[in-house]
Design a protein around this nucleic acid. Structure first.
Lengths: 336, 336
DNA sequence: GATAAATAGTTTACCGATAATAATTAAGCC
DNA sequence: GGCTTAATTATTATCGGTAAACTATTTATC
């Protein structure tokens, strides 16, 4: 159905293997033949059959991306940047959305390996089972795997991530500078693993009292989690002057709950988010937030893995950390 | 490196071909042998090499999704639902993000065809060049292609889409019911192709004056487009009492511009969005919007295409239209 | 009891590319 | 001219599956 090397060979009156070599610019083939073959290939609109190529071990020009979700602007940014970077180098992207589920992450690792992708990017993973699987796969299949913004704690892996502890610390410091001492935290169930402990650490580093009663972790996700957490906090009567949200979407939900209670932002209560999603800038009260360089991270991740693919000799693990920055807008009040 | 049929054959002391048939439950193989072979396959953790399978024309269990962007909740919903649906049936998803670029859409069509995906879903396409390419590909490669929420106007294609004209009309009707007669429209450059003409039609159907001066199409995208469009509208002095936004993200930006001007929403100016993104419900003034059943659409799209893949005899074009609904929240004022 | 028919496997060829090896042609040199 | 060597192209095998053709046993039929 589609054009193969054979078709070109027939027209060029040379052997299939000559065509293959010609198209791959082999020095064994004369320049005239190369030109002639390429012209014919072009004319016939030839595209190599990737399945065949994969079969002889030449790779599939495909990368797998395992990602927990694509509903928050944060992971979407990663997805977008990865895709963007890949289209430049003519790689295809195959994705697996896991919803933070370990089993799914592992399933996708196996699946992608079986599909002989050239490399796998694992974004936002937290599980040691995944780490184990990755170790297994790199050994048996020799597939380069790189962690992006994951918390798989092993120095033996390649990873690139954002120093979130630093980011949260910046948030808390900024609140302290503005006279806030009673600071709460709202997140969803995934917060336990990362940002919530970081918040606790940040409070301690800033010599502020960490009050577990002001830390809310909802079972729902996104805005809903923020809304529910804030409602509960308001009901408890033990209301902080400022809230650090696990991420912007949570902050938006929490702010809504505050509005509904008749509170003014930031006069009555301050909010600081994390992620710097597109919408945050355009809220009635624009959200002050921590902005992680998700795009840079994805870009560097792709570069790292492509490097490993192209040069299998690179065995040294590569580990990169990027610093997020504080974006000051309107949602934090100065109490001094 | 990885386990092949040969390995299983060796252990089972049968021919490779017997193994292949056994694993595919061929009636030519005895039940005992099938069980024995399958056990060994399981023990060795065998996964078939998809490249090899693809080479003999057995499909790749892969679907391609061509999508204009994944930065709006709308297309993300589509992506998410498609992925979700596919993981159930053990298909993989390979995606191409085109940023509404015709050339990219065509490039991805070619690319995916060359990768011998089993089928392609094209979301949000507007171009007749794409239609042409699709016709070409279905002929030469025999790949099922289905349009999702696209505006490729040919009855010969399979498509599933949302009746946006109906949605916009609902929006305008609702505004009229609430006493609005001076209604504006804000969108980005992609609005020309679809929703803006629909808005015009809706105004006429509702016997309201369509004023081009109240129609803004910005060069930027998302909130930025709404913000810029609204600014301009406010500057012009010719301010409507209500705005229909091309989509919720645009509405959010437009509302911000109104707030900055000191206007109250909905008292001074009403807004109605389109898409019903997650955030809309949680805005200070919750956004009234049109909610397209994006998930259903994606689900049905996947079902359609899988049906076509599994039964190549299905040649009748399938065309489905879904109706969006109006979600009434707080952003429209009753002027009566 | 000879022949047909069903059963269970094995051989072989093939998909479309690449790689290793073989063969041809041409050029260079005494 | 004959022989070596280099340059170029052709053959063949291979990757890991599947399918068609073929072989070897049983089992059924009259």
């Amino acid at each position: 159905m589609s054009i193969t090397l054979k078709d070109i060979a027939k027209r060029a009156k040379v052997n299939v293997s000559t065509v293959s070599k010609a198209l791959n610019d082999s020095p064994e083939i004369s320049t005239e033949t190369i030109i002639r073959v390429k012209k014919i290939a072009q004319a016939l609109n030839y595209t190599p059959n990737l399945a065949a190529r994969a079969l002889v071990g030449k790779g599939t020009k495909t990368l797998g991306l395992i990602i927990p979700e694509v509903s928050s602007n944060y992971f979407v940014k990663i997805l977008n940047s990865v895709e963007d970077e890949l289209k430049r180098i003519e790689y295809s992207l195959i994705i697996g959305i896991t919803d933070f589920n370990v089993k799914e992450e592992i399933r996708y690792l196996d699946l992608f390996a079986g599909r002989s992708v050239d490399g796998i990017l694992v974004a936002g993973s937290y599980y040691k089972e995944v780490a184990k699987k990755v170790k297994e796969l790199t050994k048996s299949y020799d597939i380069p795997i790189i962690f992006i913004q994951s918390f798989v704690h092993f120095d033996q892996f390649d990873y690139i991530m954002i120093d979130d502890a630093h980011g949260i610390n910046k948030a808390v410091s900024y609140l302290k500078e503005n006279g806030h001492t009673h600071i709460g935290f709202i997140g969803d169930k995934t917060a336990d693993m990362v940002r919530q402990p970081m918040f606790k650490a940040a409070m301690e580093q800033n010599e502020l009292a960490y009050d577990p009663a002001m830390v809310m972790r909802s079972n729902s996700r996104f805005e809903q989690a923020g809304y529910a957490g804030m409602k509960e906090l308001l009901k408890s009567g033990n209301v902080p002057t400022a809230i650090v949200a696990q991420y912007d979407n949570v902050a938006i939900g929490a702010m809504k709950a505050a509005y509904e209670q008749g509170l003014s932002i930031p006069e009555d209560i301050s909010f600081i988010g994390y992620d710097n999603i597109r919408e945050s800038e355009f809220l009635e009260c624009a959200l002050t937030t921590i902005s992680p360089p998700a795009q840079d991270m994805a870009r560097i991740g792709v570069k790292l893995i492509i490097g490993k693919i192209n040069d299998k000799k690179i065995v040294a693990t590569q580990q990169v950390k990027l610093l997020p920055e504080l974006i000051i807008r309107e949602s934090v009040n100065n109490r001094l």
